[in-house]
């Protein structure tokens, strides 16, 4: 994420990572690129935020990891959602929607 976005709600990064992994397993750089892609380039996740988040979420049991070969045959660690991770994604998605609606109302209020 760029500096301007570091103040985003805690959990946004988690939600984005969970969402990016929902379609299948990815390695670290892959996660970063997928987040960039699905947010249309608004969020650029830097390794200094990415890796702590990945390890934290793995310890929480939302992700598992395994070593595999990359597209151009490099050894890389691939992250995958667990069942708990999917549940977390659902929970955070609905939570996010609720907040988005609430903030929307708030901003429209006169």
């Amino acid at each position: 994420m760029t500096d301007r976005q570091t103040n985003l709600l805690q959990g946004t990064l988690d939600l984005l990572i969970l969402k990016s992994l929902a379609l299948g397993e990815l390695h670290g750089l892959g996660v970063a690129r997928r987040v960039e892609q699905i947010t249309r380039g608004t969020f650029q996740v830097k390794p200094g935020s990415l890796f702590p988040a990945l390890y934290r979420m793995e310890e929480a049991g939302w992700l598992t990891s395994s070593w595999g070969a990359s597209e151009n045959n490099r050894r890389a660690k691939y992250y995958k959602l667990t069942a708990a991770g999917r549940k977390q994604l659902d929970a955070e998605t609905s939570e996010w929607k609720r907040i988005a609606v609430a903030i929307g109302f708030a901003l429209q209020a006169t």
Binding site: G28, P47, S70, N72, R74, A76, K77
Partner: peptide, 17 residues
């Protein structure tokens, strides 16, 4: 070791890119 390899893999992949 695993953390080290993970971060280095990231650098390698980024370099490739």
């Amino acid at each position: 070791r695993e953390l080290d390899a993970d971060v280095r893999a990231y650098v390698d992949l980024l370099t490739d890119e």
